[in-house]
Design a protein around this nucleic acid. Structure first.
Lengths: 205, 205
DNA sequence: AATAAAAATGAGTGAGCACTCACTTGGAGG
DNA sequence: CCTCCAAGTGAGTGCTCACTCATTTTTATT
């Protein structure tokens, strides 16, 4: 009876991600995970020694996944492209946006847990944040040297861009009612526009 | 023996904020709150019916506090100032930065809980987010009409600014090691600079 | 100083829940 | 068809922890 080719372990992981992201790790009972995964409670503990192990397994797998997606992919896009910087930036933000949105449940779980668990925060910093920042800063530094970008602190620029995108995603995820995803492209273009040209009106010709 | 004029209720609240922000609501035991507050465990339940009531009391008080600080104060600063917009913006970001940093524990608690508890999220949106956004958007809209700002969607501008500041604060709070708060002023000036003038180099004269 | 009322205490209780384990089921190999 | 083992089960267990309450301590009142 190999119904769906989705392993028991995966069923448990998927159910856990969904429940952890909805209700948080502590408020999720192992009995609920079992019910949602369609397995008996005892089965969970044949695959994971403790409930916390489920969380750590999710976090570890996800961080591996993201360190690829955030680092390998953008490297190619950014460093081997002949497009104007403005477009590279828009492309980059757009597919980061999509990646984060698509995996929002799992990111929410990691983010929530990182707030109170130093170990998870460290993993996140070591495997994702530092390298992402480095690439972003390098991209900006190159732009400065090519005379495309103004000489501003790369860290600040990258951090602000990231904050802008994250707030957009947060708004869409937590309050999806108003406009939905229809003008995401426009939103991202506007953000690029703000960062490239600023908000100050330039009356002088 | 009125040692310090700090009431038992306040001692409990303060201990709770500290512990909730460090370890999260669920992982904090009432026995720990009691020890940290310097009272017996039973005393807690003379002031709060349940542990959850402590949390809700913190959240409610904090939201009241912030809806004042975020709305009344900026209204005066922003709408009755003769300074150039650039300076208003810098002032505004600076004291928002300070306010958030100073109250980071409590904001972290509310933020963490808001991620998984709809009721708290709703309160936050209703009493703080909506009005803050409105004021921000109005400020920007006025600027457009006065010809100071470019005609961009106010919501996007305000959201991005907020995201930039929040990421700065997050970095400082979670990784305070490197440079500490010494160049916060410079960071904020840079953010204002980015938003006002963009990052694109302008070679033409 | 005596009395009453309010506040504080902390050992005890029971409910909830992560985890165990003796047992059942499914299916591969002979 | 039987055997055997891995995979799965779920009632049961014990521990943790929020909450209670009978008792003690503090404060206010006369």
């Amino acid at each position: 009876m190999k119904k769906d080719d989705i392993s028991t372990e995966e069923k448990i992981i998927n159910a856990s991600i969904e429940l952890f992201s909805e209700k948080g790790f502590d408020s999720t009972k192992t009995s609920e995970i079992a019910k949602n995964a369609g397995v008996a409670e005892g089965t969970i503990f044949r695959y994971f020694k403790t409930k916390k192990d489920i969380l750590m397994s999710i976090v570890t797998k996800a961080i591996q996944f993201f360190s690829e997606k955030f680092i390998v992919l953008p490297l190619n896009k950014v460093l081997h492209s002949e497009k104007p910087e403005e477009e590279i930036l828009a492309d980059l933000l757009k597919d980061r946006y999509e990646m984060i949105s698509k995996n929002f449940s799992i990111i929410k779980v990691i983010g929530t847990e990182a707030l109170t668990k130093e170990k998870i925060r460290e993993k996140l910093v070591e495997h994702v944040a530092i390298k992402t920042l480095e690439i972003g800063e390098e991209f900006y530094q190159n732009g400065i040297e090519k005379g495309i970008f103004r000489d501003l602190p790369p860290r600040t620029v990258v951090r602000s861009l990231f904050g802008s995108i994250m707030m957009l995603i947060a708004e869409q995820q937590f309050f999806p009612d108003d406009k939905k995803s229809k003008d995401v492209d426009k939103e991202i273009s506007t953000i690029v526009e703000i960062f490239m040209n600023g908000i100050k009106s330039r009356k002088e010709q």
